[in-house]
Design a protein around this nucleic acid. Structure first.
Lengths: 116, 116
DNA sequence: TTAGTATATGAATAAGTGTTCATATATTAC
DNA sequence: GTAATATATGAACACTTATTCATATACTAA
């Protein structure tokens, strides 16, 4: 037992929370999705792709990194359905997967009072 | 130079991307904010607090973890302004910082086609 | 086919981070 | 003051992960 001053309300909230808690598997999916966009190197790629689709070479240029590092990060973003790719000749052209992605970034910016 | 099939458009997009790229410091802020909500243990706490404010004891019960682990995670969420705390007697009562937090979770769920 | 360019990837190393354990602080009751 | 309860925190270990380097694959042109 506990000495919580709000035993009643908190215990009810805790019980509801337990009942409505997403399954471990769903929590992990959400976690994985957020982690995919949480890394500075990957955030830069997303902000770059906000300007339109781009091939790896130009993404690398836009974010100021190396081809290998960018390619590794693109893989992670792609695996998590944050971006999509299509091959066009020698190039692979990347773009944001859907509108949710930029909406998420916008919300986060709003929360931080940042202007992007 | 490059052999990109879309040299013109991509080069323009890359140039715009460079111009509009948030500063390193802003990217890091965003990254830190997303990382704060990216961990399964912390996501569970947020889903728990969706049911209403709770003290540490009940949060621990709701997420099924240990007092110490929860306290460490609460610290991270609090430092990142994802949740807020107020002391009430022996207890410290936590709640979501603002509506942005649940909006972010909802958007992410939507992106993943999950029902929470 | 060969040469050249674009992109991807495996392995290794280095940096970051979550949990546990022990302990410290804060508040209340006596 | 002491005891009991609630919460916080520092250190250590285990685990994850981003980058680098070397190399592999894919496509084009000749």
């Amino acid at each position: 037992m506990t000495n919580c001053n709000h035993e009643e309300e908190h215990a009810f909230a805790a019980a509801r929370a337990k009942m409505n808690m997403p399954k471990e598997e769903e929590i992990v999916s959400l976690s994985t999705a957020f982690k995919a966009i949480s890394e500075p190197s990957r955030l830069k790629i997303l902000f770059a792709l906000r300007q339109g689709e781009m091939c790896v070479f130009h993404i690398t240029e836009a974010v100021g990194s190396t081809q290998s590092a960018v390619s590794h990060q693109l893989r992670i973003l792609r695996d998590n359905h944050v971006i999509k790719a299509r091959r066009d000749g020698q190039n692979v052209v990347y773009s944001l997967a859907d509108a949710h992605v930029m909406a998420l970034l916008s919300l986060a910016c709003e929360h931080l009072n940042c202007k992007f």
